[in-house]
Design a protein around this nucleic acid. Structure first.
Lengths: 120, 120
DNA sequence: AACCCCGTTAACATTCTTTTCACCACTGCG
DNA sequence: CGCAGTGGTGAAAAGAATGTTAACGGGGTT
């Protein structure tokens, strides 16, 4: 006998998958290839913001607005620094994948791409 | 995470299509046959300016005014240089298409044209 | 208090973009 | 044909944006 009906997926349990990347929105956990990436809260939020439109460019201002709220102060580097750490942590788990792409002068784009191994 | 602006109706997603060319105005991204052309911001803006009246000639002065604002300095080559790189990038993706046409002494005209393969 | 974690900030390094210049090819005309 | 103006192109110089590291400081914990 099973009681599956009792465990209907609530929004909190929602997970989002993009290639080897998996975001558990409810408990703010990110997994890469099933491995915990141990992102901090801010890091997770930035990554989640990029998730709004996967494979599309999201401006720095947009990320800032979604995570911190309000306008991004002139020359603020908070977004960059967090992106750097996100890349670092995800990259440590999946070295031949690239997740966050820079769009110079605009912002970032999240789309997991396998790196060609021929160049290692 | 701040969700105040989360689901704002981003009509920035507006895209413009001309033959195999697709401009995502909001993201400032240009695609050719679905492939990202990775134009820089200026390059995109110049291309966008030519888009104002597709298939019609647009003067250099006009392009300059729309992208840089103000009058074009005497003998300024900025527009030309950017057109050159636009052609280069678009051409790399779709070798048998021509997008930007020169009108001597006047300016440029944007209209994607397939090149007859028989002449190669 | 001492410690640790995290977010922020500042400073410097690096990479990418834009501008500028020089040289040459091409056009149109006398 | 030769001249003058215009556009194509490559590359250096100048300028901006992003990458990266480390220090600082607030909170919470021991």
């Amino acid at each position: 006998m099973n009681h599956e009906a009792a465990t209907a997926p609530t929004l909190q349990d929602q997970t989002l998958s993009l290639g080897p990347l998996e975001l558990r929105l409810g408990d703010r956990e990110a997994l890469v290839s099933g491995v915990r990436a141990s992102l901090t809260v801010r890091e997770f939020e930035v990554l989640e913001a990029l998730t709004e439109r996967p494979d599309r460019v999201i401006t720095r201002e947009d990320v800032y607005g979604r995570v911190w709220g309000g306008r991004m102060p002139y020359r603020d580097r908070a977004v960059d620094v967090h992106v750097k750490r996100i890349r670092q942590k995800l990259g440590a788990i999946a070295p031949n994948w690239t997740f966050v792409h820079t769009h110079f002068g605009i912002g970032y784009r999240l789309s997991p791409e396998a790196v060609d191994e021929g160049q290692q």
